[in-house]
Simulated assay, not measured.
Amino acid sequence: MSDNSSPTPYPGIETSAPLARDFTFTTQRAGETLTMRVEAASWGYPNWGLQIGVSIDDGGKTRHNSTGVRRPDLPFERATVGDALALFESVGIVPCRTCGAPAFDPDTSITNRAGECESCFLERIDRDFERQMLPSRIRELKAELQRAVDHKAKGFTHRLLAMIHPEAGGDDYLVEFFTKKEPTPAEIEKLLKKRRSAVLNDYRLTHLDILQTSLQEALAKAEADKVTFAAETTEARKVAAKAARDAKKAIGAAAKTPGKARSPKATARAGKPPQGDQGDAS
Results as ranks from 00 to 15, higher is better:
residue 2 S to Y: 00
residue 4 N to I: 13
residue 8 T to K: 15
residue 12 G to S: 02
residue 13 I to S: 01
residue 15 T to M: 08
residue 16 S to F: 01
residue 19 L to F: 07
residue 32 E to Y: 10
residue 33 T to M: 01
residue 34 L to R: 11
residue 36 M to E: 00
residue 37 R to C: 09
residue 42 S to Y: 03
residue 43 W to H: 07
residue 48 W to L: 00
residue 50 L to E: 05
residue 50 L to V: 03
residue 57 D to E: 01
residue 57 D to N: 03
residue 59 G to I: 04
residue 68 G to D: 02
residue 69 V to Q: 05
residue 70 R to M: 12
residue 77 E to Q: 13
residue 79 A to Q: 01
residue 80 T to G: 14
residue 84 A to L: 08
residue 87 L to M: 13
residue 90 S to P: 07
residue 92 G to Q: 01
residue 93 I to N: 03
residue 98 T to Y: 14
residue 99 C to I: 07
residue 100 G to N: 10
residue 101 A to G: 15
residue 101 A to N: 15
residue 102 P to T: 08
residue 104 F to N: 04
residue 112 N to S: 12
residue 119 S to Q: 15
residue 122 L to K: 12
residue 124 R to I: 02
residue 128 D to S: 15
residue 130 E to C: 03
residue 131 R to A: 07
residue 132 Q to L: 15
residue 133 M to H: 12
residue 139 R to G: 08
residue 141 L to W: 11
residue 143 A to Q: 11
residue 150 D to H: 01
residue 164 I to K: 00
residue 169 G to E: 11
residue 173 Y to V: 05
residue 179 T to C: 03
residue 181 K to D: 13
residue 184 T to D: 08
residue 190 K to L: 12
residue 190 K to M: 14
residue 193 K to Y: 04
residue 203 Y to C: 00
residue 204 R to V: 09
residue 206 T to Q: 12
residue 207 H to F: 06
residue 208 L to G: 06
residue 217 E to T: 13
residue 235 E to K: 09
residue 239 V to G: 09
residue 240 A to K: 10
residue 241 A to F: 11
residue 242 K to T: 13
residue 248 K to P: 01
residue 252 G to L: 13
residue 253 A to I: 14
residue 256 K to P: 05
residue 257 T to F: 10
residue 258 P to W: 10
residue 260 K to W: 02
residue 264 P to C: 09
residue 265 K to S: 11
residue 265 K to G: 08
residue 268 A to M: 12
residue 268 A to D: 09
residue 270 A to R: 12
residue 273 P to S: 11
residue 280 D to S: 15
